[in-house]
Write a protein that binds this DNA or RNA. Structure first.
Lengths: 134, 134
DNA sequence: GTAGCTGCAAACTCTTTGCAACTCT
DNA sequence: AGAGTTGCAAAGAGTTTGCAGCTAC
């Protein structure tokens, strides 16, 4: 049983065949797939699965904080299972997503919010770029 | 004639009554209005204006880089005319947008992209928070 | 005069949802 | 058995677009 499936089961979710399939897709995904992509991969394992179920499952997992929904500058959402805190650089030519982390950034972020009199609840830091040719 | 209108005219755009109205709304806006809000304000000056025209005009101005379109964590776009470089803190309780700038952030941003082998084309840095009660 | 702009309504994209049937537990 | 889950199709929200008529230049 996968890690995600474990946590879903302990949360009291019914482990249906469809959920097992979607969780397997997510566990195997090392990229940041869109709903459409998760659906395609899931359909390869179980052709009867519906995209409505994929939407419902991903929303559910996002609410449970088991995955993270991103809305980059595209007109659809992407999801990722990597729960370690980090940010993203999106390759404008390929759509590829590169993860990075930076401690200075973390400090500045909180400092700014505090100075403005706010408690930082969420944030978004995305870089969009083109690969340098050497 | 407003500043925005000037620049539109020099770019060869026809100055229709509707455009004049929308540009006036934008010139007077010191907030970050959504399409719907621009439409409402424009309708107060000219009730016959259509929301399609508002959409078309805002997209056009965005392409011309006369205004900036933002897609915060809401399911609609907002626009702003303030062209000075800055970032945003969005008040999660009211939707209010507070602008700020920070030089350290600028430096780090470019440094990170460079280290990853990318040329920074665009970026997004948004903080979401709740007002601290004192 | 004519290229460009407008209003209207229909179309589009992504996402959510009502419902009846089904399935884990 | 019963609450939760599913597939389907319809509905929603925000946005874009085809078209015929209108308007700035």
């Amino acid at each position: 049983m996968t890690d995600l499936a474990d946590r879903c089961a302990s949360a009291g979710l019914k482990m249906t065949e469809q959920r097992r399939t979607i969780l397997k897709v997510l566990d195997q995904a090392h990229d940041h797939p869109s709903v459409e992509v998760v659906y395609e991969r899931a359909k390869n394992m179980d052709p009867s699965i519906s995209i409505a179920t994929v939407y419902r499952t991903l929303s559910l997992l996002d609410e449970m904080d088991l995955i993270v929904r991103h809305e980059f500058k595209e007109n659809f959402s992407r999801y990722e299972t990597n729960m370690e805190h980090h940010h993203h650089l999106i390759d404008l030519e390929t759509g590829a997503v590169i993860e990075f982390k930076n401690d200075d950034l973390e400090k500045i972020k909180h400092k700014i919010a505090q100075e403005l009199g706010y408690d930082l609840v969420d944030h978004r830091l995305e870089l969009y770029g083109k690969k340098l040719k050497k």
